[in-house]
Design a protein around this nucleic acid. Structure first.
Lengths: 273, 273
DNA sequence: CGATAAGTTGAACTGGCTCAAGTCATGTGG
DNA sequence: CCACATGACTTGAGCCAGTTCAACTTATCG
């Protein structure tokens, strides 16, 4: 029924505005908290730098990186960053907003494979085969930097620390996927939801945002698909967690009240993460 | 109860024999079919080369690679290649035999995260954090090459095609993990088992081995853990598939009789894979 | 050859699924 | 700017695939 929803029929990579004419357009899209998304900001000045690619580069190296990055492109909810099957051209650094990646199975069902927050890199699934194995879609208004992969490869060959950084970034993606696999193939529904909330919490923490209060822009169906349960189960788990005063859920707005309790449910050692 | 089974208490990286004194030791361990495992064979001559790292390198480059690879080390069933938490030093190319990777959860349960066959690379989970996030264990007698990662990084910076090859290899690991995630979070037990058999089948095919007849060295418990079902369910699925004349299962020996039928169950397009 | 691990099969139970009926949020056109 | 249509979310009830527990058979290896 709701196969191929395609809420917005922009083509992939269809941000028509050039890198220069979007000045100011993407302002205010990060919930007004900070202004990550000023499109003119360079990698060296970007406050996400420490999460993104530039970490471990010196000033000269960052200026080389700056030259290949197409900065500050904007998207609104439902827009595609790329689609499953597209030629792989670039990887994308999220600046603001959140994105999901998903595959569409043969019988037309959407299967969510990832959730990406600001400072994280999307699109590495295309590296091995030269075309994207999944689609990436904005869950809300957002912006991103596009990094053409062949240029990144060239630059990496010249800057060893950049090569190392990117190896590590890909390694992180592998670890993340394996954690997800472990989560989904062993744990109960409640544990999966708890683990997702904790993951977002800790990623927010790294970004200097509140680890206990955030907006989860995915729908219940997306969350369910990602965690391998139905949307009804997700809803019921949220209700139960709320009844136990572990979280307060107001639609997409999540407030973690009892962090230790949440960790206990997720069976994560309280110190770790 | 059967937590931390540690069937063999060799320490990790505990192959005490030096790279030179193992000549001949590892002969015949690949079921006698071919002799992948002659430890003295160089990367250029290794018949697994086209699956492994050397592909896309020229003769001179391969000789550089040869210099950093520690070749032909042998392991027997239950031996660890590395353990969860070990310092990350190297990645490992499987030459013969098969290996599983797994994590042990807080409550002592083993969770299988990967199955690796000859020509494949294990250990990339350690790249991002400098220590291994999982353990790798031989499922049967086998051998491998050890590639110290810092040397590979250095060499990659000097040989762009090697850097590209390794980016692609890591990308493959990401794609593989995401496929696994999709499989486990959406499909029924029968589909998961069918998909696993098809995956091994196609990987065997690439290695010029029979796609329809092979040995699956994992126990039913390992398979179940990997696929997110219980060992009893795995057993029952095998029985059912056998009753339908889709496969013939004799303990660990698998014979796919009706490949199209198996693909239908796995919901994989018959052309693909 | 005997002990122990691995695998099979049965029976009862249950967490999460399916189907259904309703409320609530959101965004678009009048 | 409101109305209303559509999609998102919640909650309930019944059902079923896969789990759990158990008893047994078959492999493996010291």
């Amino acid at each position: 029924m709701h196969a191929n929803p395609a809420p917005n029929e922009k083509g992939s990579l269809s941000v028509k505005s050039s890198a220069t004419d979007v000045h100011g357009l993407a302002k205010d899209i990060s919930h007004g908290r900070t202004c990550h998304s000023n499109p003119s900001v360079s990698c060296g000045d970007c406050r996400l730098g420490e999460l993104c690619l530039p970490i471990a580069l010196d000033a000269v190296e960052i200026s080389h990186l700056d030259e290949i990055v197409k900065r500050g492109r904007a998207l609104s909810k439902g827009d595609y960053l790329y689609r499953e099957g597209d030629d792989f051209q670039a990887i994308y650094a999220i600046r603001a907003g959140s994105f999901k990646t998903f595959k569409t199975t043969l019988d037309g069902v959407e299967q969510v494979t990832g959730l990406y927050l600001p400072g994280e890199i999307v699109g590495m699934d295309g590296i091995s085969s030269n075309h994207h194995g999944s689609s990436a879609m904005a869950l809300e208004t957002g912006s991103f930097c596009e990094i053409p992969f062949h240029l990144l490869e060239e630059l990496s060959a010249r800057i060893p620390s950049l090569q190392g950084r990117f190896f590590r970034l890909m390694g992180q993606e592998i670890v993340k996927d394996q954690q997800m696999l472990t989560l989904v193939s062993s744990n109960a529904a409640e544990e999966r939801v708890a683990a997702l909330l904790l993951s977002i919490s800790s990623r927010n923490h790294r970004r200097k945002l509140s680890p206990s209060q955030f907006r989860l822009a995915m729908t219940r169906a997306d969350i369910g698909s990602y965690l391998g349960v139905t949307l009804e189960t997700v809803s019921r788990v949220f209700s139960r967690l709320q009844k136990q005063s572990i979280v307060k859920v107001d639609n997409k707005e999540i407030h973690v009240i009892d962090m230790a309790g949440l960790k206990a449910i997720a069976k994560v050692s309280v110190s770790g993460y």
